[in-house]
């Protein structure tokens, strides 16, 4: 009988050998990745400053006791886009084949109530399904930026409350730290819904009056890594959402 330890310790990788990329090419790709991340962080930082600066400016001139967040957009003259362009690249980043539609169907197992678009809004959804899960991108337009902002702002505390209520339970929610580098506003949370380690990561990003929900199923991968992958794969869509911004691209 063969000794498994000998077998293991003499393990090698014969057969098909691949020629790794030159080190210079690996560094070039790494530098490109880093620049992209930095650019996104810079855009998010400017948006965050705008969001913070506006309430502070209003607080300085008003004694209002209204607890709802002040509008992020101070300009009443903006006309918010109410139709998703036909060529909007919603499926970008999703594995093929992708099924698209103009209605919303939740693709995740939400431990608590999650996000859903308002019933009257313009919605488009792109879904990749496999036998054990899948990934999706859903884009919804709100009448104004203010309404989109309120919807996402309200969901933050609700999700945090859900996370606190489900600590130590078999099904629970984690809210991941906001990295502040996605769109005008973002929220990322994880539904842990089975003993086997199945998770659904949900990333919500707002740009102007549009909210993108990007989701994916995962198992055996840390939630933070899965969230990083969701973010990576939705980057092109978030970039394209600039058409819904107050100052559109």
């Amino acid at each position: 009988m063969r000794d498994p330890l000998d077998e293991l310790e003499n393990f090698s990788t014969p057969g098909l050998t691949m020629n790794p990329l030159p080190a210079t090419e690996v560094r070039r790709r790494g530098t490109r990745l880093r620049r992209r991340n930095n650019a996104l962080a810079a855009i998010g930082g400017v948006a965050a400053v705008a969001i913070i600066a506006t309430p502070l400016a209003m607080a300085a001139t008003s004694k209002s006791t209204d607890t709802t967040p002040p509008p992020a957009n101070p300009s009443p003259s903006v006309t918010w886009v109410q139709e998703i362009p036909a060529d909007f690249p919603l499926a970008e980043g999703l594995p093929a084949p992708v099924r698209t539609g103009s209605s919303y169907e939740s693709q995740v197992t939400d431990v608590c109530a999650g996000w859903a678009p308002p019933s009257s809004s313009e919605v488009r959804q792109a879904v990749f399904r496999e036998s054990e899960g899948g990934s999706s991108h859903t884009l919804a337009l709100y009448p104004t930026e203010r309404e989109a902002e309120l919807a996402l702002t309200a969901l933050g505390p609700e999700t945090q409350a859900c996370a606190l209520q489900t600590v130590g339970k078999q099904r629970w929610v984690d809210v991941l730290p906001d990295q502040g580098d996605q769109g005008d506003q973002s929220l990322v949370y994880v539904n842990h819904y089975s003993d086997a380690g199945d998770i659904d990561v949900v990333q919500l990003v707002r740009v102007g009056n549009a909210i993108l929900e990007a989701t994916t199923y995962s198992n055996g991968v840390p939630a933070e890594d899965t969230a990083a992958l969701v973010k990576e794969q939705s980057t092109s869509v978030v970039d394209a959402m600039c058409v819904f911004a107050a100052d559109p691209c």
């Binding site: 014969p14 057969g15 050998t17 030159p22």
Partner: peptide
């Protein structure tokens, strides 16, 4: 993708 592949020795049965 990684660089182009090329064939070398086939893996043994034990491997």
């Amino acid at each position: 993708a990684v660089g182009p592949a090329y064939e070398s020795a086939a893996p043994s049965e034990a491997h």
